[in-house]
Design a protein around this nucleic acid. Structure first.
Lengths: 119, 119
DNA sequence: AAAACCTTGACACAACCTTGGTAAGGTTGG
DNA sequence: CCAACCTTACCAAGGTTGTGTCAAGGTTTT
């Protein structure tokens, strides 16, 4: 038996068994499974569950937020699109007219969306 | 009058005036204000509003998600904490015992949370 | 000064998120 | 073989999101 079952893991991490399943569905921590389908939490998963608790407690964020951050890390196209949008803050440099800037930003965005080149 | 008022901006961007206020409260797009408090949307804001629409339409994400990404970009300590947690995927390299890895990850996390050094 | 805007604040509502519970059924250990 | 677990799949309550609408009051335009 290589790992704790879900209720044991809940015990040592402070999460409820229910929440461990929810966290899994969010794509955050997916434990191994036994041949019969039981979840088996190893030391790494247990530690990650504990630090996840700290992370949520210390900053004003939700599980969904962490899930989205994980998604950003996996889906490079999404990450690129979001970064591009965020990078286009309305802080245009001096000496550049609004229209020039606008055209530049628009083309940059189109370039990025056009090619599935991101990595 | 340097900019469109909220209903004019709504007209050209496809958002409702209500949603423009909502988007502002989410910290995503904060237009300038006239001396009497009217929102004034410039070309950059209008373009960002349009690309925001595309972003949401093309990927399965919410306004709150984009707001969280914006927060990650602004709050470096939060970004560091989330990145550290995500980076600790349970894919430990061969030849390293689980305990070694665990200790390493834990210390890394503590180091990062300890100092407000992030930038 | 009246019409046509804008502001914030509130009520409303469907759809979803977060969590807990419970039920029907498979697994495991004594 | 039976108690004590595990699994998935639902129901449910309370909070959040996304959106509209309306009210009371200031501003701009004609």
């Amino acid at each position: 038996m290589a790992g704790l079952t879900i209720n044991e893991a809940a015990e040592t991490t402070g999460w409820s068994a229910r929440m461990l399943r929810y966290i899994e569905r969010e794509g955050l921590i997916e434990p191994a499974r036994s041949s019969s389908g039981y979840r088996l939490y190893g030391p790494e998963e247990l530690q990650r569950l504990r630090t996840l608790r700290e992370l949520l407690a210390e900053h004003e964020i939700s599980l969904g937020d962490v899930g989205f951050a994980a998604r950003l890390r996996r889906e490079s196209e999404l990450r690129g699109a979001v970064e591009t949008w965020l990078a286009a803050e309305p802080r245009r440099p001096e000496g550049v007219t609004a229209n020039d800037w606008l055209r530049f930003e628009q083309q940059k965005h189109e370039r990025l969306l056009a090619g599935p080149a991101a990595a």
